[in-house]
Design a protein around this nucleic acid. Structure first.
Lengths: 260, 260
DNA sequence: CGACTCATTGAGCGAAGTCAACGTCCGTGG
DNA sequence: CCACGGACGTTGACTTCGCTCAATGAGTCG
């Protein structure tokens, strides 16, 4: 097993562990997952819309995105995935992709056969719940994405996006939220926010001129986190599923009766 | 048990059954769910952001929506739920709500204690998978919502929304996709699409003047489905999770080896 | 060096927002 | 029975944010 596979799986386990308690045995089972690694080029489908997959894609290094397409050729990114994210964990229960998965820059992807994941989920129901919860967090991020695109100004939604990515990267432990590598072009940022690349450029200039951040050669440096977060109306709560919780509580566990 | 509870649960089971095979015993278990029914007023929180719930909300009749809020008070609807939808099934694994749940018009809600659902999910792993898959479909709808809000013109996204709601209502078997009740105000439609109510009004007029539909007193009548779907770039595939599938395939089931 | 991709800048335009007024429907209460 | 109030729908005038089109830098790779 390559070093990058090991560290990628470790990031994935950490990600799950942040939200769900896992036993040592369960964590070991996850770390023992095997698949093939591929370096994916930017802007080429890793998974195409309508494709039925028999594996899930774990990002080892780089940046991947899910793309929705509109008939006239315009694209909308609906999710960005960083190292340690299993992009399409939901493909375990819904293997037909409804969108395209692409790398935004050269990205290492580990393809994990569904078979291994379902085996694990069957052996450890707790892991199945952790998977489901992980999908819930992705859905929660997606919800915020709708708000971002629908109701915030270009300036505010760019601020929000950068705060989100910084926070997610810091949480996964690979860098600081105020200084991170974000290998996306202005064109791709436009696809994420529903803006044209030209306007993305102007928005970034405005953020720079307000001394909020620098963004050059894919390196983001946030100079004033507080003001940027305020501008983006950023509240990181949605990135968590209220901490560690036993998944499906044991039947004999105390459990409050609903008040209604 | 009231008649509306019975028919609401039946709709929910049908919804699950459309995507996941359920045995008779499993379906019976679902139909035996019990909770309290409440008629919720429009525009009042049923679930508030940050609230930790111990029950899930099944829509029996009416229309409910999930609302994200921006600091300046503007709102964005991220999901609409019709009769038979368990709005917050994901609260089973992530009980802290990140958004508000509200009725758009007076709506009957059945509050089902998590306890009953988790018991069922533990007893029948197949049901747990059906739940997870149901959440995946919701996420898929959410993805399209991002595309709709981010990349389509107001006219096109309104067309898309109406096609989606028509199709979902028809699928649940309560009416035709070209003639259905849709109890939302123009203000709420604006919240769903990221538009102002004034512009919603103009968009609806444009759709009417093109002879595509009528929309009066909450009754939608689509006069030319083909042209409306084309205008909205609507492809219903995303509303399904590729039909009926065994959830976590049995360990000894044939399963293709990944090609990579 | 040339080809290519990405970032930047400018000028003009248009879709959607803002503000404000008025119409319509409906329930309520004098 | 009608007057009143409130919520929702409609319309017009004006503004603005972000798009379009087009050209020019800047950086990189073969």
């Amino acid at each position: 097993m390559s070093a990058s596979t090991r560290s990628g799986l470790q990031l994935f386990v950490d990600r799950l562990h942040r939200r769900s308690s896992l036993t040592g045995e369960e964590a070991e089972g996850l770390l023992a997952l095997r698949g093939s690694v591929r370096i994916e080029k930017a802007n080429v489908d890793i998974v195409s819309p309508g494709e039925v997959t028999d594996h899930a894609c774990l990002v080892l290094d780089g940046l991947a995105g899910r793309f929705g397409v509109v008939i006239d050729g315009r694209r909308q990114i609906t999710a960005l995935h960083i190292a340690g994210d299993m992009c399409d964990l939901h493909s375990l229960v819904a293997p037909t992709a409804g969108w395209a998965l692409q790398a935004l820059s050269p990205t290492a992807i580990l393809r994990v056969p569904h078979r291994q994941l379902t085996d694990l989920a069957r052996r450890f129901p707790n892991v199945a719940t952790a998977f489901w919860r992980d999908c819930s967090v992705d859905a929660s991020i997606l919800s915020q994405w709708v708000v971002n695109v629908g109701r915030r100004s270009a300036l505010s939604s760019m601020a929000h996006l950068l705060c989100e990515m910084g926070t997610r990267l810091e949480n996964s432990g690979v860098c600081s939220r105020t200084a991170f590598r974000f290998p996306a072009t202005q064109y791709q940022l436009g696809d994420a926010l529903g803006l044209t690349p030209v306007h993305v450029n102007r928005v970034l200039q405005e953020l720079r001129s307000r001394d909020l951040l620098t963004f050059h050669a894919c390196e983001v440096r946030i100079r004033d986190w507080g003001r940027l977060a305020a501008l983006g109306d950023f509240d990181e709560a949605y990135l968590y599923a209220n901490g560690r919780r036993e998944a499906l509580p044991a039947r004999d566990e105390p459990h409050r009766v609903p008040t209604c």
